[in-house]
C-alpha cells in the first residue's frame, strides 16, 4: 500500500513537472539568443518591413548565417552591425542611426503632430469666431399694434 502511494506520488511529480518548458528553454543556446537579438535590429532587404530574424527570405536566412559565423569568430554585436552598415548603408538598420537627415525620421512625427494640431486649432478657432453669437439681451416686448398684426397673419 505504502509502495503504491509512493509510486503514485512520483508519477504525479513527473507528470506535473514542466519538462517540456525546460527543454524548450535549453534548446536555445546563448549564441542563438545573441543571433536573434542582432538579427532583430537588421532589416531584410527583400521584405523591407521585416527584420532578418522574422523574414523567411533566403537572403535573410543567409544574413542570419553571417551574423552567427561572425559571433563565433568573436565579433561584437556592434562590429556585426557596422559590417552590415558598411555594405547596405543606414537602410539596413531597423532603427535608423541618429545622425544627419535621419533625425527627420525621429522628429518628423512630432513635427507632423504639432504642425497638424496647430493648423487644426487655427481652423476650428476661425469657425468658432465666424459663428454669430446669440443676442445678449431679451428682445423688447411687442406693442399692441404689432401683436394684433401677427395674430391676423397667423389666422389667415
Amino acid at each position: 500500500m505504502r509502495m503504491s502511494i509512493r509510486f503514485t506520488l512520483i508519477l504525479l511529480l513527473i507528470l506535473t513537472s514542466p519538462w517540456p518548458l525546460l527543454a524548450e528553454v535549453q534548446d536555445e543556446t546563448a549564441l542563438d539568443i545573441q543571433v536573434r537579438e542582432i538579427a532583430k535590429t537588421l532589416r531584410c532587404t527583400v521584405c523591407q518591413t521585416e527584420n532578418i530574424w522574422e523574414s523567411g527570405a533566403p537572403l535573410a536566412q543567409q544574413m542570419r548565417g553571417v551574423v552567427r559565423e561572425r559571433l563565433k569568430l568573436g565579433h561584437s554585436p556592434e562590429d556585426i552591425q557596422e559590417y552590415f552598415l558598411s555594405r547596405y548603408g543606414d537602410y539596413i538598420m531597423m532603427e535608423p542611426p541618429k545622425h544627419g537627415v535621419n533625425w527627420l525620421i525621429w522628429v518628423g512625427p512630432f513635427i507632423l503632430l504639432l504642425g497638424g494640431g496647430l493648423l487644426l486649432y487655427k481652423e476650428v478657432n476661425g469657425w468658432v469666431r465666424g459663428t454669430p453669437s446669440p443676442p445678449a439681451a431679451a428682445p423688447p416686448p411687442l406693442d399692441e399694434q404689432a401683436r394684433q398684426r401677427l395674430e391676423r397673419e397667423l389666422e389667415s
Binding site: P58, L59, Q62, M63, G65, R87
Partner: peptide, 10 residues
C-alpha cells in the same frame, strides 16, 4: 554558395 558574396557587395 552561402550568399556571402552578395552580402559583401550589398
Amino acid at each position: 554558395l552561402h550568399g556571402q558574396i552578395a552580402i559583401d557587395y550589398g
